[in-house]
Design a protein around this nucleic acid. Structure first.
Length: 955
RNA sequence: GCCGAAGUGGCGGAAUUGGUAGACGCGCUGGACUCAAAAUCCAGUGUCCUUCGGGACGUGUGGGUUCGAGUCCCACCUUCGGUACCA
């Protein structure tokens, strides 16, 4: 009897599954609605309580939409290719396919326990050959197309070949890596190999030389976040930048459209701004500087061509192709030393470093086309090869970094802008009057920019250009656990697409996952697979994590189709994702790539919408508390020694201790400032980390060593080894993962769902704290008791509800409806609590009130409401009920409680009629006793009355 | 560094459009029930002062706009996310 989630939840989960309650058809008279979660990467640690936050929110919204008459697509799947599984394989020898399968099963079971309304028949797993067949297929479409800027859409590569055969590059305006110029005759004379290289310059999926973080000691390529301070995070081995021929995707061809189409999206302004900044559109000029005493030219891009008279030196990216050529013999040694240094620097370090600029002089000079002066050419890490042209004209007077560079290396600074009439304008603000600038002198910056560009174009040394910070996406990984490329190379090294009929190119089974000695992917070891009978060879790189996740939302629409990635019928019915919920950590990467792929498929006529995700909701992270023990860096008498955090504090030993994360299950008062290990906790800790078996543990009360406790204080029998608590990521490595299964087992899924929502707004990050969950649990029991008392007596009656009871109900209908629509689920839970409290006070057990309330709460607590719904006599699922209609007439009040302020400070409240006029309200307020005492003897200067809101008297 | 977000009681948070700051819940305090404890129920709970009427202060810090600012503007501090091979 009574509310027993352990009984009703598995029962309903099973029945829903048996009856296919959450199966979604691809045809329906109802309007469609697509609610999507960012699918998880199934890590070995399992789901923690942070993951379901967004899933619960989307589940509530999907259920809400279904109750409002929509055919709702709400699927789930797994992003299953990726680095961690491969890393795990290298460490343990367990094949990624096996660990991934196991992890997915665990995730699936965990998700099931929470009672989501997923249509599991539509599950998508990116490492499944049936799925990645189509990832490869889309890649091939990219490979087979180039972007025609005139037509503003991709066209088949055959059209480009025809163009070259007829006219060479003449009249071509195509997205490319490098502007090429050749004639039809040149094209005709090219070898197959040369033609392949030319076409690579235009393909949307193409190969070029790019740099990777190569760690010779580990024999592997590292992700940027695996590199810290120029060495590998694991092991601290040196890392260098190594050039490799790799696949890239020409996302830059879509830069303008990716930027422009942001406007029509229902995303937060912050998110749109982040995407826009990532795309980084700028307007400026592209121009050439001649290298002195040479026929070489250096191409630069600048957003400030107006400052060219102040360009007193040039800086090239260290990797710039002209560097070896122009470096003079005297400077060779210095330049090479500098290149050696840069090789060890990560890209992030290179741009982030602002305090200390570094560089080297090449010995060569360029000619400033306007001042005609010889200006030195330097190289420096702050100029990046892949941004702009990899070369800049340095204007120390008007650019912060250039100025620092000039100051450090004693280069001339020529002031070119007078900003005296713009007080407060920063060095890089585009305002001021030009000085020392030849024909530009006296102009305003804005006019000067226009004038100089016109002049540059007139002189034929450059042209106006729009540039994007967005770079093409490197699409090769020298890894095993990813999609193989559907590409083969012939004897001459020319890339060919694998015929569509032969897709998927399946990933061969390997037992050794380390890359080869020269940095090629582990797949290179699968020689039987790599070498084809006709002498051709397969591509051995694999695709990155974002390949499979860039289009998975389309596959859910028609997940078992073997003829197409999804049928046109399914695509035309579901169209796009109406609401997409996921973390901000994907703000740029995943969302940008998905938008790019989607636009490409749209251009080819495969999908009916320009954008994949109409509305985006960003969910915050649920953080964990990390509990650290302090371990002295110096051993004491040869024993490791742990100190209570309070002792470390008192003795000021922070510099002399290391922090060892401890499993939170051992810690008393977990999460509070005075969390600690007692003797029992220490024993568990030693059992868990046997290497500390002989360690000394010292706290205020005494010392524990080798199983014995020596009290410092008389009579002490236990100690408190205080831990240091910090909020941070919930992660296996900090041993602070809270498993939703444990919470569900203790409180039930409905309680878990509501508590996660009750914690706060979904878009905010917050630490997980189990303490508050009792409140929600208590609420659910009280809610149940509106229907059935503890003794099992059914209380629901068919009496007509009172006006007051209807007001409680309709207040809740209004609040919950509004709040679900604005994704404020935390306040919905409060609204349910308020309603339950009020109804309990009114001793209301009437069906006419409770039944609609049940429907309101069904999205939040699906099991409990389904159970009570059936007990009320319904035979069909509550998911097919109708959302209760709001009747405003039950909410109107006769009187309103007005706050009355003097000079903006509240001094009194008064019940006044709701229909009173401004004048009546003013009069009533001035007559109040509590108000008179404030205004007596003063003049009332003004009375502000906002009907329905407040009254303010100014004296 | 750059881009983005957030700072409100002891804690999670509420205040939707510039209009009663602290809804709802946790915790805490007191009471009821109980041999006792748990559970449950009732009452109180921002801080300080108080003659117990009330008063002063209070939304990261400093300034500003306004009859009125948690909300708008300027500057700063702190924390979190991203920064292109973690997913």
């Amino acid at each position: 009897m009574g509310y027993n989630p352990a009984e009703i939840e598995p029962k309903w989960q099973q029945r829903w599954e048996e009856e296919g309650v959450y199966r979604v058809p691809n045809e329906s008279d109802k309007p469609k609605y697509y609610v999507l979660d960012m699918f998880p990467y199934p890590s070995g640690a399992g789901l923690h309580v942070g993951h379901p936050l967004g899933y619960i929110a989307s589940d509530i919204f999907a259920r809400y939409k279904r109750l409002n008459g929509y055919n709702v697509l709400h699927p789930m799947g797994f992003d299953a290719f990726g680095l961690p599984a491969e890393q795990y394989a290298i460490e343990t020898g367990v094949h990624p396919a096996e660990s991934t399968k196991r992890n997915i099963e665990r995730y699936r079971a965990q998700l099931r326990h929470i009672g989501f309304c997923y249509d599991w028949s539509r599950e998508v797993i990116t490492c499944d050959p049936k799925y990645y067949k189509w990832t490869q297929w889309i890649f091939l479409q990219l490979f087979r197309h180039w972007y025609d800027r005139k037509a503003d859409r991709p066209r088949p590569i055959e059209a480009l070949i025809a163009h070259f055969a007829q006219r060479g590059t003449e009249g071509l305006d195509a997205a490319c890596s490098e502007e090429l110029h050749f004639s039809a005759a040149d094209w005709a004379a090219m070898s197959a190999r040369e033609r392949d290289e030319v076409l690579m310059n235009y393909r949307l999926a193409y190969r070029k030389v790019t740099y990777v973080n190569w760690c010779p000691a580990l024999g592997t390529v590292l992700a940027n976040d695996e590199v810290k301070d120029g060495v590998s995070e694991r092991g601290g081995h040196p890392v260098e930048r190594k050039a490799m021929l790799q696949w890239s995707l020409r996302i830059t061809a879509y830069a303008e459209r990716l930027l422009r189409d942001l406007e029509e999206l229902d995303w937060s302004e912050a998110m749109k701004r982040m995407q826009a900044n990532w795309i980084g559109r700028s307007e400026g000029a592209q121009l050439f500087f001649e290298v002195a005493d040479s026929d070489r030219k250096i191409e630069i891009y600048t957003t400030r061509p107006d400052t060219i008279f102040g360009a007193t030196f040039m800086v090239l990216a260290p990797e710039h192709e002209l560097v070896p050529e122009i470096t003079t013999p005297e400077q060779r040694e210095e330049v090479e030393k500098y290149l050696e240094y840069v090789k060890r620097r990560s890209e992030r370090e290179r741009v982030a470093e602002v305090k200390d600029v570094t560089g080297a002089f090449t010995g060569a000079y360029a000619i400033n086309p306007f001042t005609k002066e010889r200006i030195p050419i330097w190289i420096s890490e702050y100029v990046l090869k892949d941004y702009g042209t990899g070369a800049i004209m340095a204007v120390p007077a008007d650019d912060e970094r250039d100025r620092r560079f000039a100051e450090k290396f004693g280069l001339p600074i020529v002031e070119i802008i007078d900003k005296s009439m713009y007080p407060g304008a920063g060095i890089e603000d585009k305002v001021g009057k030009m000085i020392n600038s030849g024909f530009l002198t006296g102009m305003e910056v804005k006019d000067a920019i226009e004038a100089i560009i016109r002049k540059i174009e007139e002189m034929g040394i450059g042209k106006r250009k729009v540039n994007y910070k967005l770079r093409d996406a490197i699409f090769s990984r020298q890894r095993y656990w990813g999609e193989p490329f559907p590409i083969v190379y012939d004897e001459q090294g020319v890339a060919h697409a694998v015929p569509e009929a032969e897709l998927p190119v399946e990933l061969p089974w390997l037992d050794e996952f380390k890359p080869t000695a020269d940095g090629r992917s582990p797949l290179a070891r699968a020689t039987d697979w790599v070498n084809l009978p006709n002498g051709w060879r397969r591509e051995t790189d694999t695709m990155p994590g974002f390949a499979g996740s860039s289009w998975y939302f389309l596959r859910y629409m028609d997940p078992h189709n073997d003829e197409a990635f999804a049928s046109p019928e399914a695509l035309n019915y579901w169209r796009d994702v109406d609401v997409y919920i996921g973390g901000t950590e994907h703000a740029v990467g995943h969302l940008m790539y998905s938008r790019f792929w989607h636009k490409f498929l749209y251009d080819l006529g495969y999908v009916p919408t320009k954008e994949p995700f109409r509305k985006l909701i960003n969910q915050g992270m649920i953080q964990g508390v990390i509990e650290f023990l302090y371990l002295l860096k110096e051993k004491e008498d040869g024993y490791p020694k742990f100190l209570s955090a309070k002792l470390v504090e008192a003795r000021g030993l922070h510099d002399q201790v290391a922090r060892i994360p401890v499993y939170i299950g051992f810690v008393k008062n977990y999460g509070s400032p005075d969390s600690y290990l007692d003797l029992e906790g220490i024993r568990k800790f030693i059992e868990w980390r046997p290497e500390f078996e002989n360690a000394i543990f010292e706290a205020e009360e005494g010392v524990f060593h080798q199983g014995r406790f020596a009290p410092k204080k008389e009579g002490a029998t236990d100690l408190r080894l205080y831990t240091h608590s910090e909020t941070g990521k919930m992660s296996k490595r900090y041993h602070n993962v809270v498993n939703p299964d444990d919470v569900v087992a203790r409180y039930g899924a409905d309680c878990f769902r509501m508590y996660e929502m009750f914690l706060g707004p979904i878009e905010q990050s917050k630490p997980w704290d189990t303490k508050g969950i009792d409140g929600v649990s208590k609420f659910l029991r009280r809610f149940w008791e509106l229907f059935e008392d503890e003794k099992g007596n059914w209380l629901v009656t068919d009496e007509a509800p009172s006006k007051e009871e209807l007001k409680v109900l309709h207040t809740c209908i209004k609040k919950v409806g509004e709040d679900i629509r604005r994704f404020a689920f935390n306040t919905c839970v409060s609204a349910f609590m308020v309603a339950a409290n009020d109804l309990r006070k009114l001793d209301c057990h009437k069906r006419a009130v409770l039944e609609p309330l049940l429907v309101l709460m069904a999205p939040f607590a699906p099991h409990l409401t389904e159970e009570l719904w059936h007990r009320l006599g319904h035979e069909t699922t509550i998911n097919d009920a109708a959302w209760p209609e709001l009747k405003e007439e039950y909410l109107v009040e006769d009187t309103i409680t007005y706050p009355i302020s003097i000079n903006g400070k509240k001094r009194a409240v008064a019940q006044l009629p709701a229909n009173a006029s401004k004048e009546e309200l003013e009069k009533a307020a001035l007559q109040l006793e509590a108000i008179r005492k404030w205004i007596d003897g003063k003049t009332v200067r003004k009375v502000i009355v906002v009907p329905g809101r407040m009254i303010n008297i100014v004296v």
